[in-house]
């Protein structure tokens, strides 16, 4: 492996995350997966929205785009569609991706556009100091759920799969080896890939729910999960309330930019004598 820090903008460190936060672990996993695949740094664009997790891109040495809240996938769609040769990776959080950005999430999945999305799910709005999110479990506490969360949480992976994502996986900031493996596979999938990474927010989720410190919050996450392979041998009552980790779905569907490219090639064959103004194909080489 190349020097780990070579993937970071060292002058931007230290990061803003709290002691014990899991986002750094997930960021490290992404970098290790990129390194394993030997991807060209200059060909990668990292896109994020707003929130604690979205600050990750600012520390990484790629072309990086820190966008508006919830809009990372819409910006990323424009980048990938305009320049399909680029490797586009989105780093987002549970609120950014499934609340304010939920619409873009399901439509990016529906298009199966070749974007790898890492959802850092800490079940809380950390940047605004602890409000409940679409992935806060029922009954858990948050500053806007002082009597326990009345709502029920999204299954982010189930949502992604149902909407059309062609690679869906889940790991946690505890299961780091698994997380790196899954991100590596996601990066290789030609289509919309989602890796949900459950991460601990000891400051606003763990403390509010009296889970203890960072280690206890991380263990709480670990204890909620069962590996998908192990789950096959377990009875339904053992799986009650558990989240499966591992590769949850992998399938082949036509990818958006490839389909658009095929359509374009067909149109251009039909209009091969097309002389529309002075814009030529050379302008749009990729």
């Amino acid at each position: 492996m190349a020097e780990f820090l070579d993937y970071f903008r060292k002058e931007r460190l230290p990061h803003i995350w709290c002691p014990g936060c899991g986002h750094g672990t997930v960021t490290g996993a992404l970098v290790r997966a990129i390194d394993r695949l030997g991807l060209d740094k200059n060909n990668i664009v990292l896109v994020s929205g707003i929130g604690c997790s979205s600050r990750a891109v600012g520390y990484l040495d790629f072309d990086t785009l820190h966008t508006a809240h919830g809009r990372a996938l819409a910006f990323a769609t424009g980048i990938k569609h305009a320049s399909p040769n680029l490797k586009v990776i989105v780093m987002t959080g549970d609120g950014d991706c499934t609340a304010i950005g939920g619409n873009h999430f399901i439509h990016a999945a529906r298009r199966n556009i070749d974007i790898t999305t890492i959802v850092m799910n800490n079940s809380i709005y950390g940047m605004t100091s602890g409000q409940y999110s679409p992935t806060t479990p029922h009954g858990m506490l948050a500053t806007t759920a002082p009597y326990g969360n009345v709502e029920y949480d999204f299954d982010v992976c189930g949502l992604a799969k149902a909407a059309g994502a062609s690679y869906v996986a889940r790991a946690t900031s505890y299961h780091v080896t698994l997380l790196i493996d899954l991100i590596e596979k996601a990066l290789q999938n030609k289509g919309f890939s989602v890796v949900e990474a459950l991460t601990q927010c000891p400051t606003y989720f763990g403390r509010k729910n009296k889970l203890g410190g960072a280690v206890e919050t991380l263990n709480w996450i670990k204890d909620r999960t069962v590996n998908v392979k192990a789950a096959a041998a377990l009875s339904p009552d053992k799986l009650e309330g558990k989240l499966l980790i591992g590769e949850l779905y992998s399938g082949q569907r036509p990818e958006y930019t490839a389909s658009y490219g095929e359509m374009t090639a067909k149109v251009q064959r039909t209009y091969n004598d097309y002389k529309g103004g002075n814009r030529g194909c050379e302008l749009n080489s990729d």
Binding site: A74, T77, G78, H81, A82, N103, H104, H107, Y260, M263, T264, V267, Q268, Y271, Y274, G276, R279, G280, C281, L283, N284, S285
Partner: peptide, 11 residues
């Protein structure tokens, strides 16, 4: 598409 440009109808 005739000139190699890109159109997309967003959500």
């Amino acid at each position: 598409p005739k000139g190699g440009g890109k159109f997309i109808q967003m959500e």
